[in-house]
Design a protein around this nucleic acid. Structure first.
Lengths: 103, 103
DNA sequence: ATAATATATTCTAATATTCTCAAAAATAGT
DNA sequence: ACTATTTTTGAGAATATTAGAATATATTAT
């Protein structure tokens, strides 16, 4: 993206974009939810593995998963008695990559 | 960034990274503050121009500016009787570019 | 049907965020 | 010093978010 594009860009005038983007960022703006994203960045994982790996109480993780799921950030698939989550929103993966960049 | 890097990446285990990043995202996760970032993306602007351009009450904008300033996202410079703000944190500009990308 | 395992939902108390309005600083010009 | 302009700060109520406990649901095996 060129600097000119940024100067001429008028996305910030689009209230719908602002609201949607703020919602997206709000969903990500929590240590536990970022942790979930980071853990899922390497691929689909089931709920039990998630809360065990993250060392957080199961209901708490479940709440955060539902927030991320409801905002369309995560997708899930039931596989028998277990449920596996994955990052559905590609933009979020890009954002996360951006965030872990050292600079 | 290669996919392997994402698989092997362990940033999500770094509690300090999680907290700092969540703070950063929380600061951005508001329509008015995103609007400010978008407006400033094209360069330094003074406060009056900001709240006029954004069509928001002046004290409200000032509060949002102080949030962004206190988190080190914005810098400012007094020029006589007016104060001008600019995006200081380069990561935020990168993030914003990422967010306005159509996909 | 019952038990065991895996996951989700609901409620509550504590805390944080948000907006609005009023008042207070800071600066410049007269 | 007085006034106008610009910007910041504070108090208040309204709303939202959070963790944690208790409970509920779904699936599988016996």
């Amino acid at each position: 993206m060129l600097k000119e594009d940024l100067v001429e860009n008028t996305k910030w005038q689009d209230e719908q974009f602002l609201e949607d983007t703020a919602e997206l960022l709000k969903a990500l703006a929590h240590p536990a939810r970022l942790k979930i994203i980071g853990y899922l960045a390497s691929g689909k994982k089931c709920v039990k593995h998630i809360w065990e790996a993250l060392d957080l109480p199961q209901p708490n993780v479940s709440q955060h998963l539902s927030i991320l799921r409801n905002r369309g950030i995560l997708g899930y698939k039931r596989e028998g008695s277990i449920v596996c989550y994955y990052i559905k929103d590609k933009r979020v993966l890009e954002l996360y990559k951006n965030l872990i960049q050292e600079d």
